[in-house]
Nucleic acid binder design. Structure first.
Lengths: 240, 240
DNA sequence: CGAGGGTTTGAAGTGCATCAAATAGTGTGG
DNA sequence: CCACACTATTTGATGCACTTCAAACCCTCG
Protein backbone atom coordinates (compact mmCIF):
# COMPACT_ATOMS: atom_id res chain seq x y z
CA UNK A 1 0.00 0.00 0.00
CA UNK A 2 2.61 2.45 1.07
CA UNK A 3 4.92 1.00 -1.55
CA UNK A 4 2.32 1.79 -4.17
CA UNK A 5 2.20 5.41 -3.06
CA UNK A 6 5.94 5.68 -3.38
CA UNK A 7 5.83 4.22 -6.86
CA UNK A 8 3.17 6.74 -7.81
CA UNK A 9 5.29 9.49 -6.37
CA UNK A 10 8.31 8.42 -8.36
CA UNK A 11 6.27 8.33 -11.54
CA UNK A 12 5.46 12.02 -11.22
CA UNK A 13 9.03 12.72 -12.26
CA UNK A 14 9.50 12.92 -16.03
CA UNK A 15 12.72 11.00 -15.55
CA UNK A 16 11.25 8.15 -13.55
CA UNK A 17 8.15 7.95 -15.69
CA UNK A 18 10.26 6.60 -18.51
CA UNK A 19 11.55 3.66 -16.56
CA UNK A 20 10.20 0.14 -16.81
CA UNK A 21 7.94 -0.89 -13.96
CA UNK A 22 10.30 -3.37 -12.26
CA UNK A 23 13.01 -0.77 -12.17
CA UNK A 24 10.71 1.81 -10.61
CA UNK A 25 9.69 -0.71 -7.99
CA UNK A 26 13.30 -1.50 -7.31
CA UNK A 27 14.05 2.17 -6.71
CA UNK A 28 10.89 2.59 -4.66
CA UNK A 29 12.05 -0.16 -2.33
CA UNK A 30 14.80 2.07 -1.00
CA UNK A 31 12.78 5.29 -0.82
CA UNK A 32 10.76 6.90 1.88
CA UNK A 33 8.84 10.13 2.08
CA UNK A 34 9.87 12.94 4.35
CA UNK A 35 8.30 16.18 5.46
CA UNK A 36 10.24 19.39 5.75
CA UNK A 37 9.07 22.52 7.49
CA UNK A 38 9.69 25.96 6.04
CA UNK A 39 13.34 26.81 6.56
CA UNK A 40 14.52 23.23 6.91
CA UNK A 41 17.77 22.50 5.11
CA UNK A 42 17.82 19.48 2.84
CA UNK A 43 21.52 19.66 2.10
CA UNK A 44 24.51 21.94 2.37
CA UNK A 45 26.75 23.05 -0.44
CA UNK A 46 29.86 20.81 -0.73
CA UNK A 47 28.48 18.06 1.51
CA UNK A 48 28.92 14.50 0.38
CA UNK A 49 25.70 13.27 -1.16
CA UNK A 50 23.45 10.92 0.74
CA UNK A 51 20.12 11.50 -0.97
CA UNK A 52 18.43 12.81 -4.04
CA UNK A 53 14.96 14.21 -3.46
CA UNK A 54 11.89 14.16 -5.60
CA UNK A 55 9.60 16.96 -4.54
CA UNK A 56 6.03 15.78 -4.17
CA UNK A 57 4.67 18.98 -2.71
CA UNK A 58 5.95 22.42 -1.75
CA UNK A 59 8.97 24.40 -2.91
CA UNK A 60 12.71 24.21 -2.37
CA UNK A 61 15.24 26.92 -3.11
CA UNK A 62 18.78 26.22 -4.25
CA UNK A 63 21.33 28.81 -3.16
CA UNK A 64 25.07 29.28 -3.22
CA UNK A 65 27.17 31.58 -1.14
CA UNK A 66 29.14 34.21 -2.98
CA UNK A 67 32.63 35.18 -1.91
CA UNK A 68 31.43 38.43 -0.44
CA UNK A 69 28.95 36.66 1.79
CA UNK A 70 25.77 37.08 -0.21
CA UNK A 71 23.39 34.35 -1.27
CA UNK A 72 22.84 33.66 -4.94
CA UNK A 73 19.56 31.91 -5.71
CA UNK A 74 20.18 29.35 -8.42
CA UNK A 75 16.67 27.97 -8.68
CA UNK A 76 13.43 27.31 -6.87
CA UNK A 77 11.99 23.87 -7.54
CA UNK A 78 8.48 22.53 -7.08
CA UNK A 79 6.68 19.24 -7.37
CA UNK A 80 7.92 16.66 -9.88
CA UNK A 81 11.41 18.16 -9.72
CA UNK A 82 14.56 16.45 -8.54
CA UNK A 83 17.02 17.97 -6.11
CA UNK A 84 20.62 16.85 -6.06
CA UNK A 85 20.95 15.14 -9.41
CA UNK A 86 24.35 16.78 -9.84
CA UNK A 87 25.68 14.43 -7.17
CA UNK A 88 25.58 11.53 -9.59
CA UNK A 89 28.94 12.59 -10.95
CA UNK A 90 32.24 13.11 -9.13
CA UNK A 91 32.90 14.59 -6.66
CA UNK A 92 29.48 13.31 -5.57
CA UNK A 93 28.80 16.40 -3.50
CA UNK A 94 25.94 18.88 -3.54
CA UNK A 95 26.76 21.99 -5.47
CA UNK A 96 24.12 24.09 -3.72
CA UNK A 97 22.39 24.42 -0.42
CA UNK A 98 18.76 23.34 -0.63
CA UNK A 99 16.22 24.90 1.73
CA UNK A 100 12.48 24.35 1.98
CA UNK A 101 10.66 27.64 1.41
CA UNK A 102 7.30 26.20 2.40
CA UNK A 103 6.15 22.97 3.92
CA UNK A 104 7.60 20.30 1.67
CA UNK A 105 6.85 16.65 1.09
CA UNK A 106 9.65 14.87 -0.68
CA UNK A 107 10.57 11.39 -1.68
CA UNK A 108 14.01 10.58 -0.35
CA UNK A 109 15.95 8.51 -2.85
CA UNK A 110 19.16 7.07 -1.44
CA UNK A 111 22.13 8.34 -3.35
CA UNK A 112 23.84 4.98 -3.26
CA UNK A 113 20.88 3.35 -4.95
CA UNK A 114 20.95 5.77 -7.85
CA UNK A 115 24.69 5.54 -8.26
CA UNK A 116 24.54 1.82 -8.20
CA UNK A 117 21.77 1.84 -10.75
CA UNK A 118 23.69 4.11 -13.05
CA UNK A 119 26.76 1.96 -12.77
CA UNK A 120 24.94 -1.26 -13.37
CA UNK A 121 22.17 -0.33 -15.73
CA UNK A 122 22.98 1.29 -19.05
CA UNK A 123 19.34 1.95 -19.78
CA UNK A 124 18.98 4.00 -16.64
CA UNK A 125 22.15 5.93 -17.41
CA UNK A 126 20.77 6.70 -20.87
CA UNK A 127 17.52 8.02 -19.47
CA UNK A 128 19.31 10.21 -16.97
CA UNK A 129 21.48 11.49 -19.79
CA UNK A 130 18.43 12.30 -21.86
CA UNK A 131 16.88 14.08 -18.90
CA UNK A 132 19.97 16.14 -18.19
CA UNK A 133 20.42 17.10 -21.83
CA UNK A 134 16.87 18.45 -21.75
CA UNK A 135 17.60 20.45 -18.64
CA UNK A 136 20.69 21.80 -20.29
CA UNK A 137 18.65 23.28 -23.12
CA UNK A 138 16.37 24.96 -20.62
CA UNK A 139 19.34 26.41 -18.84
CA UNK A 140 20.81 27.80 -22.02
CA UNK A 141 17.51 29.44 -22.77
CA UNK A 142 17.59 30.88 -19.29
CA UNK A 143 21.00 32.39 -19.97
CA UNK A 144 19.56 34.01 -23.05
CA UNK A 145 16.63 35.34 -21.07
CA UNK A 146 18.87 37.00 -18.52
CA UNK A 147 20.50 38.95 -21.30
CA UNK A 148 17.70 39.72 -23.71
CA UNK A 149 14.54 39.97 -21.63
CA UNK A 150 13.49 42.95 -19.55
CA UNK A 151 12.37 42.50 -15.96
CA UNK A 152 8.64 42.58 -16.80
CA UNK A 153 9.21 40.04 -19.56
CA UNK A 154 11.02 37.69 -17.23
CA UNK A 155 8.11 37.84 -14.83
CA UNK A 156 5.68 37.14 -17.63
CA UNK A 157 7.79 34.23 -18.82
CA UNK A 158 7.83 32.77 -15.34
CA UNK A 159 4.08 33.04 -15.02
CA UNK A 160 3.58 31.34 -18.37
CA UNK A 161 5.78 28.48 -17.27
CA UNK A 162 3.92 28.25 -14.01
CA UNK A 163 0.57 28.18 -15.76
CA UNK A 164 1.67 25.49 -18.19
CA UNK A 165 -0.26 25.71 -21.42
CA UNK A 166 -3.78 26.70 -20.45
CA UNK A 167 -6.28 25.26 -22.90
CA UNK A 168 -8.61 28.19 -22.91
CA UNK A 169 -6.08 30.98 -22.73
CA UNK A 170 -7.08 31.80 -19.18
CA UNK A 171 -4.68 32.00 -16.30
CA UNK A 172 -5.70 31.77 -12.69
CA UNK A 173 -3.08 30.83 -10.16
CA UNK A 174 -1.40 31.70 -6.91
CA UNK A 175 2.25 32.59 -6.58
CA UNK A 176 3.73 29.59 -4.83
CA UNK A 177 6.27 31.52 -2.77
CA UNK A 178 6.93 35.07 -1.75
CA UNK A 179 7.74 37.84 -4.15
CA UNK A 180 11.14 38.57 -2.71
CA UNK A 181 12.29 35.06 -3.46
CA UNK A 182 10.71 35.14 -6.88
CA UNK A 183 12.58 38.36 -7.58
CA UNK A 184 15.84 36.66 -6.63
CA UNK A 185 14.97 33.63 -8.72
CA UNK A 186 14.47 35.93 -11.70
CA UNK A 187 17.66 37.83 -11.00
CA UNK A 188 16.27 41.16 -9.88
CA UNK A 189 15.73 43.22 -6.73
CA UNK A 190 12.41 43.12 -4.83
CA UNK A 191 11.80 46.77 -5.66
CA UNK A 192 12.41 46.13 -9.31
CA UNK A 193 10.07 43.16 -9.18
CA UNK A 194 7.30 45.27 -7.73
CA UNK A 195 7.65 47.96 -10.36
CA UNK A 196 8.12 45.49 -13.19
CA UNK A 197 4.95 43.73 -12.13
CA UNK A 198 3.05 47.00 -12.21
CA UNK A 199 4.25 47.57 -15.73
CA UNK A 200 3.32 44.03 -16.76
CA UNK A 201 -0.22 44.57 -15.48
CA UNK A 202 -0.53 47.77 -17.39
CA UNK A 203 0.87 46.33 -20.61
CA UNK A 204 -0.93 43.00 -20.73
CA UNK A 205 -4.10 43.34 -18.70
CA UNK A 206 -2.81 40.87 -16.14
CA UNK A 207 -4.43 41.25 -12.73
CA UNK A 208 -2.81 40.44 -9.42
CA UNK A 209 -4.10 40.91 -5.91
CA UNK A 210 -1.76 39.64 -3.27
CA UNK A 211 -0.50 36.33 -4.59
CA UNK A 212 -3.51 35.73 -6.80
CA UNK A 213 -2.84 36.07 -10.52
CA UNK A 214 -5.51 36.27 -13.15
CA UNK A 215 -5.40 36.79 -16.86
CA UNK A 216 -8.10 36.40 -19.49
CA UNK A 217 -5.84 36.12 -22.47
CA UNK A 218 -2.56 34.30 -22.01
CA UNK A 219 -1.66 35.09 -25.60
CA UNK A 220 -1.47 38.78 -24.77
CA UNK A 221 1.08 37.83 -22.14
CA UNK A 222 3.00 35.67 -24.59
CA UNK A 223 3.03 38.43 -27.16
CA UNK A 224 4.49 40.83 -24.65
CA UNK A 225 6.91 38.38 -23.13
CA UNK A 226 8.30 36.16 -25.85
CA UNK A 227 9.33 38.66 -28.51
CA UNK A 228 13.05 38.74 -27.85
CA UNK A 229 13.35 35.05 -27.08
CA UNK A 230 14.66 32.31 -29.32
CA UNK A 231 12.44 29.62 -27.86
CA UNK A 232 9.72 28.05 -29.94
CA UNK A 233 6.57 30.11 -30.19
CA UNK A 234 4.08 29.88 -28.68
CA UNK A 235 6.11 29.45 -25.55
CA UNK A 236 5.34 25.93 -24.38
CA UNK A 237 6.58 26.70 -20.92
CA UNK A 238 8.34 23.88 -19.19
CA UNK A 239 7.77 24.12 -15.51
CA UNK A 240 10.95 25.43 -13.95
CA UNK B 1 49.10 6.81 -39.59
CA UNK B 2 46.12 8.92 -40.33
CA UNK B 3 44.10 6.74 -37.98
CA UNK B 4 46.55 7.55 -35.24
CA UNK B 5 46.09 11.26 -35.80
CA UNK B 6 42.37 10.88 -35.51
CA UNK B 7 42.74 8.97 -32.26
CA UNK B 8 44.98 11.71 -30.93
CA UNK B 9 42.44 14.28 -31.96
CA UNK B 10 39.65 12.46 -30.18
CA UNK B 11 41.71 12.24 -27.05
CA UNK B 12 41.93 16.02 -26.81
CA UNK B 13 38.31 15.99 -25.70
CA UNK B 14 37.86 15.55 -21.96
CA UNK B 15 34.97 13.25 -22.74
CA UNK B 16 36.85 10.99 -25.13
CA UNK B 17 39.97 10.96 -23.00
CA UNK B 18 38.13 8.91 -20.43
CA UNK B 19 37.29 6.10 -22.82
CA UNK B 20 39.19 2.86 -23.08
CA UNK B 21 41.54 2.62 -26.01
CA UNK B 22 39.58 0.06 -28.09
CA UNK B 23 36.49 2.22 -27.82
CA UNK B 24 38.34 5.31 -28.96
CA UNK B 25 39.70 3.39 -31.91
CA UNK B 26 36.25 2.16 -32.74
CA UNK B 27 34.93 5.72 -32.80
CA UNK B 28 37.95 6.92 -34.72
CA UNK B 29 37.22 4.39 -37.45
CA UNK B 30 34.13 6.33 -38.46
CA UNK B 31 35.62 9.82 -38.14
CA UNK B 32 37.33 12.10 -40.56
CA UNK B 33 38.74 15.59 -40.26
CA UNK B 34 37.24 18.49 -42.12
CA UNK B 35 38.29 22.07 -42.72
CA UNK B 36 35.86 24.95 -42.56
CA UNK B 37 36.48 28.44 -43.82
CA UNK B 38 35.37 31.49 -41.89
CA UNK B 39 31.64 31.83 -42.31
CA UNK B 40 31.00 28.19 -43.19
CA UNK B 41 27.95 26.72 -41.55
CA UNK B 42 28.39 23.43 -39.75
CA UNK B 43 24.71 22.93 -39.03
CA UNK B 44 21.39 24.72 -38.99
CA UNK B 45 19.04 25.06 -36.07
CA UNK B 46 16.34 22.33 -36.16
CA UNK B 47 18.08 20.20 -38.77
CA UNK B 48 18.22 16.47 -38.17
CA UNK B 49 21.62 15.56 -36.79
CA UNK B 50 24.18 13.88 -39.00
CA UNK B 51 27.39 14.72 -37.16
CA UNK B 52 28.90 15.81 -33.93
CA UNK B 53 32.11 17.80 -34.25
CA UNK B 54 35.17 17.93 -32.12
CA UNK B 55 37.00 21.17 -32.73
CA UNK B 56 40.72 20.62 -33.25
CA UNK B 57 41.53 24.18 -34.20
CA UNK B 58 39.72 27.49 -34.64
CA UNK B 59 36.44 28.76 -33.24
CA UNK B 60 32.76 28.08 -33.86
CA UNK B 61 29.86 30.23 -32.75
CA UNK B 62 26.48 28.84 -31.77
CA UNK B 63 23.55 31.12 -32.49
CA UNK B 64 19.78 31.00 -32.39
CA UNK B 65 17.31 33.23 -34.15
CA UNK B 66 14.99 35.23 -31.94
CA UNK B 67 11.40 35.78 -32.91
CA UNK B 68 12.04 39.34 -33.90
CA UNK B 69 14.74 38.35 -36.33
CA UNK B 70 17.83 38.94 -34.24
CA UNK B 71 20.64 36.50 -33.58
CA UNK B 72 21.33 35.37 -30.04
CA UNK B 73 24.85 34.05 -29.49
CA UNK B 74 24.66 31.05 -27.20
CA UNK B 75 28.34 30.22 -27.10
CA UNK B 76 31.63 30.34 -28.96
CA UNK B 77 33.59 27.11 -28.78
CA UNK B 78 37.27 26.41 -29.39
CA UNK B 79 39.55 23.43 -29.56
CA UNK B 80 38.77 20.36 -27.46
CA UNK B 81 35.09 21.32 -27.45
CA UNK B 82 32.23 19.32 -28.90
CA UNK B 83 29.54 20.78 -31.11
CA UNK B 84 26.15 19.11 -31.35
CA UNK B 85 26.11 16.92 -28.29
CA UNK B 86 22.51 17.92 -27.66
CA UNK B 87 21.53 15.82 -30.67
CA UNK B 88 22.11 12.64 -28.71
CA UNK B 89 18.65 12.96 -27.24
CA UNK B 90 15.27 13.22 -28.99
CA UNK B 91 14.38 14.93 -31.22
CA UNK B 92 17.94 14.37 -32.46
CA UNK B 93 18.11 17.78 -34.07
CA UNK B 94 20.55 20.64 -33.63
CA UNK B 95 19.27 23.29 -31.27
CA UNK B 96 21.54 26.00 -32.65
CA UNK B 97 23.15 27.07 -35.85
CA UNK B 98 26.90 26.54 -35.76
CA UNK B 99 29.14 28.81 -37.84
CA UNK B 100 32.92 28.89 -38.13
CA UNK B 101 34.21 32.30 -37.06
CA UNK B 102 37.75 31.56 -38.23
CA UNK B 103 39.38 28.81 -40.17
CA UNK B 104 38.38 25.64 -38.35
CA UNK B 105 39.69 22.11 -38.31
CA UNK B 106 37.22 19.69 -36.86
CA UNK B 107 36.87 15.99 -36.38
CA UNK B 108 33.58 14.85 -37.86
CA UNK B 109 32.01 12.17 -35.70
CA UNK B 110 29.06 10.47 -37.35
CA UNK B 111 25.95 10.98 -35.31
CA UNK B 112 24.77 7.42 -35.91
CA UNK B 113 27.97 6.06 -34.43
CA UNK B 114 27.56 7.99 -31.21
CA UNK B 115 23.91 7.14 -30.87
CA UNK B 116 24.64 3.52 -31.48
CA UNK B 117 27.40 3.62 -28.93
CA UNK B 118 25.19 5.19 -26.33
CA UNK B 119 22.48 2.66 -26.95
CA UNK B 120 24.80 -0.30 -26.82
CA UNK B 121 27.41 0.71 -24.31
CA UNK B 122 26.40 1.68 -20.82
CA UNK B 123 29.89 2.78 -19.94
CA UNK B 124 29.90 5.29 -22.74
CA UNK B 125 26.47 6.58 -21.74
CA UNK B 126 27.76 7.05 -18.19
CA UNK B 127 30.75 9.04 -19.35
CA UNK B 128 28.61 11.27 -21.52
CA UNK B 129 26.29 11.78 -18.57
CA UNK B 130 29.20 12.75 -16.37
CA UNK B 131 30.43 15.15 -19.02
CA UNK B 132 27.05 16.78 -19.46
CA UNK B 133 26.50 17.14 -15.72
CA UNK B 134 29.79 19.03 -15.55
CA UNK B 135 28.73 21.30 -18.36
CA UNK B 136 25.48 21.91 -16.55
CA UNK B 137 27.31 23.25 -13.52
CA UNK B 138 29.27 25.62 -15.71
CA UNK B 139 26.08 26.83 -17.29
CA UNK B 140 24.46 27.49 -13.96
CA UNK B 141 27.48 29.50 -12.95
CA UNK B 142 27.13 31.41 -16.19
CA UNK B 143 23.54 32.26 -15.31
CA UNK B 144 24.75 33.63 -12.01
CA UNK B 145 27.41 35.66 -13.76
CA UNK B 146 24.93 37.32 -16.07
CA UNK B 147 23.04 38.54 -13.04
CA UNK B 148 25.71 39.40 -10.52
CA UNK B 149 28.76 40.43 -12.50
CA UNK B 150 29.32 43.79 -14.13
CA UNK B 151 30.47 44.04 -17.73
CA UNK B 152 34.16 44.57 -16.85
CA UNK B 153 34.00 41.60 -14.49
CA UNK B 154 32.53 39.36 -17.15
CA UNK B 155 35.37 40.30 -19.50
CA UNK B 156 37.92 39.59 -16.79
CA UNK B 157 36.29 36.24 -16.05
CA UNK B 158 36.43 35.31 -19.72
CA UNK B 159 40.10 36.21 -19.96
CA UNK B 160 40.89 34.14 -16.89
CA UNK B 161 39.16 31.16 -18.41
CA UNK B 162 40.99 31.69 -21.67
CA UNK B 163 44.33 31.89 -19.89
CA UNK B 164 43.69 28.74 -17.89
CA UNK B 165 45.60 28.78 -14.64
CA UNK B 166 48.91 30.45 -15.42
CA UNK B 167 51.66 29.08 -13.23
CA UNK B 168 53.52 32.31 -12.73
CA UNK B 169 50.58 34.67 -12.54
CA UNK B 170 51.38 36.15 -15.91
CA UNK B 171 48.93 36.36 -18.76
CA UNK B 172 49.94 36.83 -22.36
CA UNK B 173 47.48 35.86 -25.02
CA UNK B 174 45.62 36.91 -28.12
CA UNK B 175 41.87 37.28 -28.37
CA UNK B 176 40.84 34.37 -30.54
CA UNK B 177 38.00 36.16 -32.32
CA UNK B 178 36.79 39.67 -32.83
CA UNK B 179 35.60 41.90 -30.05
CA UNK B 180 32.11 42.30 -31.41
CA UNK B 181 31.53 38.57 -31.17
CA UNK B 182 33.13 38.41 -27.77
CA UNK B 183 30.79 41.16 -26.64
CA UNK B 184 27.81 39.14 -27.86
CA UNK B 185 29.16 36.01 -26.20
CA UNK B 186 29.34 37.91 -22.93
CA UNK B 187 25.89 39.37 -23.37
CA UNK B 188 26.74 43.01 -24.00
CA UNK B 189 26.93 45.56 -26.81
CA UNK B 190 30.20 46.21 -28.68
CA UNK B 191 30.26 49.76 -27.33
CA UNK B 192 29.81 48.52 -23.81
CA UNK B 193 32.55 46.00 -24.34
CA UNK B 194 34.95 48.69 -25.45
CA UNK B 195 34.20 50.89 -22.48
CA UNK B 196 34.18 48.01 -20.03
CA UNK B 197 37.56 46.94 -21.28
CA UNK B 198 38.93 50.42 -20.73
CA UNK B 199 37.69 50.26 -17.17
CA UNK B 200 39.18 46.81 -16.66
CA UNK B 201 42.57 48.06 -17.81
CA UNK B 202 42.42 50.97 -15.45
CA UNK B 203 41.30 48.90 -12.48
CA UNK B 204 43.59 45.90 -12.82
CA UNK B 205 46.65 47.01 -14.75
CA UNK B 206 45.75 44.76 -17.65
CA UNK B 207 47.22 45.88 -20.95
CA UNK B 208 45.71 45.32 -24.34
CA UNK B 209 46.86 46.49 -27.74
CA UNK B 210 44.69 45.26 -30.55
CA UNK B 211 43.98 41.64 -29.75
CA UNK B 212 47.08 41.21 -27.64
CA UNK B 213 46.40 40.87 -23.92
CA UNK B 214 49.06 41.11 -21.25
CA UNK B 215 48.93 41.08 -17.51
CA UNK B 216 51.68 40.74 -14.95
CA UNK B 217 49.54 39.69 -12.05
CA UNK B 218 46.58 37.46 -12.80
CA UNK B 219 45.61 37.59 -9.14
CA UNK B 220 44.83 41.28 -9.42
CA UNK B 221 42.43 40.34 -12.19
CA UNK B 222 40.88 37.58 -10.10
CA UNK B 223 40.48 39.89 -7.15
CA UNK B 224 38.62 42.38 -9.30
CA UNK B 225 36.57 39.82 -11.19
CA UNK B 226 35.59 37.04 -8.82
CA UNK B 227 34.23 38.95 -5.84
CA UNK B 228 30.54 38.56 -6.53
CA UNK B 229 30.79 35.01 -7.83
CA UNK B 230 29.93 31.81 -6.00
CA UNK B 231 32.51 29.71 -7.81
CA UNK B 232 35.48 28.32 -5.95
CA UNK B 233 38.25 30.80 -5.38
CA UNK B 234 40.71 31.16 -6.92
CA UNK B 235 38.77 30.87 -10.10
CA UNK B 236 40.04 27.69 -11.75
CA UNK B 237 38.63 28.74 -15.07
CA UNK B 238 37.25 25.96 -17.17
CA UNK B 239 37.66 26.83 -20.78
CA UNK B 240 34.20 27.73 -22.03
C1' DC C 1 44.45 55.22 -52.36
C1' DG C 2 39.91 54.24 -51.30
C1' DA C 3 36.22 51.11 -49.46
C1' DG C 4 34.42 48.66 -45.81
C1' DG C 5 34.28 46.46 -41.55
C1' DG C 6 35.86 46.54 -36.88
C1' DT C 7 36.54 49.50 -32.91
C1' DT C 8 36.33 53.54 -30.22
C1' DT C 9 34.30 57.79 -28.55
C1' DG C 10 30.54 61.04 -27.59
C1' DA C 11 25.90 62.33 -26.12
C1' DA C 12 21.55 61.13 -24.59
C1' DG C 13 18.13 57.89 -22.88
C1' DT C 14 16.42 53.67 -20.42
C1' DG C 15 16.34 50.20 -17.05
C1' DC C 16 17.66 48.54 -12.96
C1' DA C 17 19.87 49.16 -8.37
C1' DT C 18 20.20 51.54 -4.21
C1' DC C 19 18.81 54.07 -0.27
C1' DA C 20 15.02 55.67 2.33
C1' DA C 21 10.52 55.69 3.95
C1' DA C 22 5.64 54.63 3.86
C1' DT C 23 2.16 51.03 3.74
C1' DA C 24 0.17 46.52 3.99
C1' DG C 25 0.05 42.13 5.89
C1' DT C 26 0.92 38.53 9.43
C1' DG C 27 1.55 36.36 13.71
C1' DT C 28 1.90 37.10 18.78
C1' DG C 29 0.84 38.14 23.44
C1' DG C 30 -2.34 40.46 26.15
C1' DC D 1 -10.52 40.61 19.55
C1' DC D 2 -7.10 44.27 19.70
C1' DA D 3 -2.50 46.37 19.88
C1' DC D 4 2.11 45.57 18.90
C1' DA D 5 6.11 43.85 16.53
C1' DC D 6 7.92 42.29 12.61
C1' DT D 7 8.23 41.20 7.90
C1' DA D 8 6.75 41.70 3.14
C1' DT D 9 5.68 44.82 -0.30
C1' DT D 10 5.19 49.18 -2.39
C1' DT D 11 6.51 53.85 -3.46
C1' DG D 12 9.66 57.76 -3.98
C1' DA D 13 14.05 59.84 -5.15
C1' DT D 14 18.43 59.37 -6.97
C1' DG D 15 22.51 57.28 -9.16
C1' DC D 16 24.91 54.05 -11.97
C1' DA D 17 25.33 50.69 -15.76
C1' DC D 18 24.26 49.57 -19.95
C1' DT D 19 22.01 50.66 -24.39
C1' DT D 20 21.13 53.38 -28.31
C1' DC D 21 22.11 56.44 -31.94
C1' DA D 22 25.75 58.94 -34.22
C1' DA D 23 30.05 59.95 -35.76
C1' DA D 24 34.94 59.48 -35.84
C1' DC D 25 38.84 56.61 -36.12
C1' DC D 26 41.58 52.77 -37.42
C1' DC D 27 43.05 48.98 -39.94
C1' DT D 28 43.12 45.80 -43.49
C1' DC D 29 42.62 44.55 -48.09
C1' DG D 30 41.69 45.08 -52.90
Amino acid sequence: MKRLMIVDGLLTSPLMAELKTPLVEQIAAGCHTKEFAEGDVLCHQSDAAHSVWLILDGWVKLTRETLDGGDAVWDVLGETHLVGLETLTPPFTYTTRAVAVSGVTALVIPHTALRHLIDSNGEFARLVLKFVLRQQQDERLEIEHRTHQTAPQRIGCFLLKLAGTPLDGRIDLHLPFDKGLLAARLGMQPETFSRALAKLKQETGLRMTGAHVQMDDADALRAYTCGACSGSYPCHGHAT
